[in-house]
Simulated assay, not measured.
Amino acid sequence: MAALGVALFFAPDIMLHLRADYLTHAGEVATYTLPDGTSLALDAQSAVALHFSPKERRVELLAGRLWVDVQHQDTRPFRVVAADGVTQDVGTAFFVGQDKNRVDIAVTQGRVLVGKQDAAMQTDLQVGQAAHYLRGGAVMRDPAVDPEDIAAWRYGELVIRNQSVADALRLIARYRRGPTWVWANTAGMDRVDAVLRNDHPDDAILSLINGRGLKLTHLPGNGLLITSGSR
């Protein structure tokens, strides 16, 4: 029974490793050149599978976040599939991120078309424009973003805009090479707007919890425990 429990616990990670052509771990950001010459950047804890055929170039985002600068000398359509939606390149560089059932898209250069698989209607996004969709839901436009902020993790920055403390902590934890636990009620705290360094995640966490009544405890194995503390 114990062995079965361990197997079930690790099964999702094992399946991800088996499916992925490129995969990054906690604290790892990597850039790859795809067979067509496209540049692919993967954020920490991300994975993709490639499906290149004579008719199309398709990248399936299995987990996490990516940014691509598409090679356009190859005339085959270039698409990124995430959840039940597709983002198609129209001469561009763009970001796609998947978190649970939500997928976010933003454009740094050119233009993309975003839509659900097998759906006729598509949303046209250009430089600085963003959108998202939930699994089973329609594509929704988001406020415009600074193209310099899009996928800033590629060059060591972590741009956090109007996020809850819990979400911000979870995002920073991607870059730590050790577990991070939050045992604190962060509901009702001011939302986070910050630009931090993702190559110094512990400093980023300290900066974020400063003044919010949270306490940081270092644990064996490079673990961090964040709890409520006295103000």
Rank of each mutant, 00 (worst) to 15 (best):
A2E: 04
A2W: 01
L4A: 09
L4T: 07
V6M: 13
A7D: 14
F9L: 15
F10Q: 07
A11M: 06
P12G: 09
D13H: 01
M15D: 13
L16N: 07
H17D: 14
L18Y: 09
A20H: 04
A20K: 00
Y22D: 04
L23H: 08
L23F: 04
L23A: 06
T24G: 03
V29D: 05
A30Y: 02
A30D: 10
T31Y: 00
T31A: 14
T31D: 06
T33A: 12
G37W: 06
T38D: 03
T38G: 03
L40W: 00
A44G: 02
Q45D: 07
V48T: 13
A49K: 13
L50H: 11
L50A: 11
H51E: 08
F52Q: 07
F52C: 08
S53G: 07
R57H: 07
R58E: 14
V59L: 15
G64P: 02
R65Q: 07
L66T: 05
L66V: 09
W67Q: 12
W67C: 10
D69V: 10
V70K: 06
Q71C: 09
Q71R: 12
F78K: 06
V80T: 14
V81T: 15
V81Y: 12
A82R: 02
D84P: 00
T87W: 01
Q88W: 02
D89W: 05
V90A: 03
F94N: 04
F94A: 08
V96W: 02
G97L: 02
G97V: 02
N101S: 10
N101C: 00
R102W: 04
D104V: 10
I105L: 13
T108F: 03
T108V: 11
L113C: 01
L113E: 08
G115F: 09
M121V: 15
D124C: 08
A131T: 05
H132W: 09
G136N: 11
G137S: 06
V139C: 13
M140F: 01
D146W: 08
E148I: 13
D149Q: 08
A152V: 04
W153I: 10
R154G: 13
R154N: 13
Y155D: 14
E157A: 15
L158Y: 10
R161K: 11
Q163S: 15
A166K: 15
R170C: 01
R174A: 02
R176L: 08
P179N: 04
P179G: 07
W181H: 07
W181P: 00
V182R: 06
W183I: 04
T186I: 05
T186S: 05
T186C: 06
A187N: 14
G188H: 10
M189E: 05
R191F: 07
V192Y: 04
A194Y: 10
H200E: 13
P201D: 07
D202H: 11
D203T: 11
D203A: 15
D203P: 01
I205Q: 01
L208C: 03
L208E: 01
I209L: 03
I209C: 02
G211E: 02
R212V: 00
R212L: 00
K215H: 12
K215P: 01
H218V: 13
L219V: 14
G221P: 12
I226R: 11
I226E: 10
T227V: 14
G229V: 15
S230R: 10
S230P: 00
